[in-house]
Simulated scan of single mutants.
Amino acid sequence: MSASARRLRELHAQPPLVLPNAWDAGSARAIAAAGAQAIATTSAGVAWAHGVDDAGGLDLATAVATVRAVCAAVEVPVTADVEAGYGDVARTVREVVEAGAVGVNLEDSTARVLDDPLVHAERIRAARAVGGGDLVINARTDTYLYGDRTGTIERAKIYADAGADVLFVPGVVDLPTIAELVKESPLPLNVMVGPGAPSVRELAEAGVVRISVGPAITGAAYALATAAATELLTHGTYVTLTSH
């Protein structure tokens, strides 16, 4: 096991693991400089950075190139968001691991539609076969985003049996539900946070092991760029820039 892979597993064993999500090498450097112990990429942020839509706009070559650039820019472990595997999970995982990633995030929806859990289980098995025991597989289920929430734990059991290490449930932010998921899930829980979500401390007390922000930081960065450019072009002033 590489030192980076070992470190990522150690961080999961010493929760909470807080993962600010990067979308390119520059954002990864900034996040590492802020003190992040590991970095996750965000497929939505990477897509936006390349001027394409998050739902199906990103291709494998671009995703892998971004992972390679991020891994080269920082010394902390990197886990890669590879969406649903870009049609060939084995190839995708092989390429991002060769690029330097020691973890992957695999989601169980395609074009914002939930896939059959058995289909996703096969993706997880393919990722495990390529990545071996070193790779940290974060199995994302989109039941709270696009489907029936009552199936979340059943999916978690299927994904655990397939070899996943962590269950990622974006879209859930209320503490009672999170605590129930922690209690019932056979896998450690990852949640996605942002404005209005419980604090890291509250989530840790509820038993959450992994906390990420998805594209929230990317979105905030682009919102600042839009606001600053609008002020500059409309009023010829720079207040937006001086306030950050």
Rank of each mutant, 00 (worst) to 15 (best):
T92N: 01
V76T: 10
V172Q: 11
D24Q: 12
A220H: 02
P117F: 04
V102N: 05
R9V: 13
T41D: 03
G131D: 13
Q37M: 13
A216H: 11
L175K: 03
E83D: 15
A32F: 09
A65F: 06
L118Y: 14
D81N: 12
D161F: 01
I39L: 13
K183Q: 15
L60P: 01
V193Y: 10
A61Y: 02
V130P: 05
P176N: 11
L11K: 10
A223E: 14
A3S: 13
A80P: 03
A40K: 08
D142C: 05
Y146V: 10
E205M: 02
Y86F: 15
T240K: 07
E75V: 09
P186T: 03
N138G: 07
T143P: 00
A72M: 11
V113R: 14
A33G: 02
T240M: 05
G103T: 07
R125N: 04
P117E: 04
G171V: 09
A227V: 03
T152Q: 01
G214W: 11
A47K: 03
L17T: 08
R140W: 13
S243E: 15
A162Y: 02
A127P: 11
A65L: 07
E83H: 06
A80M: 12
Y238N: 07
V119H: 13
V67F: 05
I137R: 01
G163S: 08
G87A: 04
A126T: 01
G151M: 03
L60H: 04
L17G: 07
E75G: 15
A69P: 09
G103I: 06
G171M: 09
A32Y: 10
A229M: 13
L189P: 07
L224Y: 14
L106W: 01
I31L: 14
V46K: 03
L187R: 03
G131V: 07
K157V: 13
T240C: 08
R6Y: 13
D108Q: 04
I211A: 04
N138I: 06
G196Q: 12
A225C: 11
A127K: 07
Y86R: 00
R68M: 07
A101W: 00
L11V: 11
A34C: 09
D53E: 15
V93G: 02
P16N: 10
A38G: 09
G236V: 09
A38N: 12
L11H: 03
P15T: 14
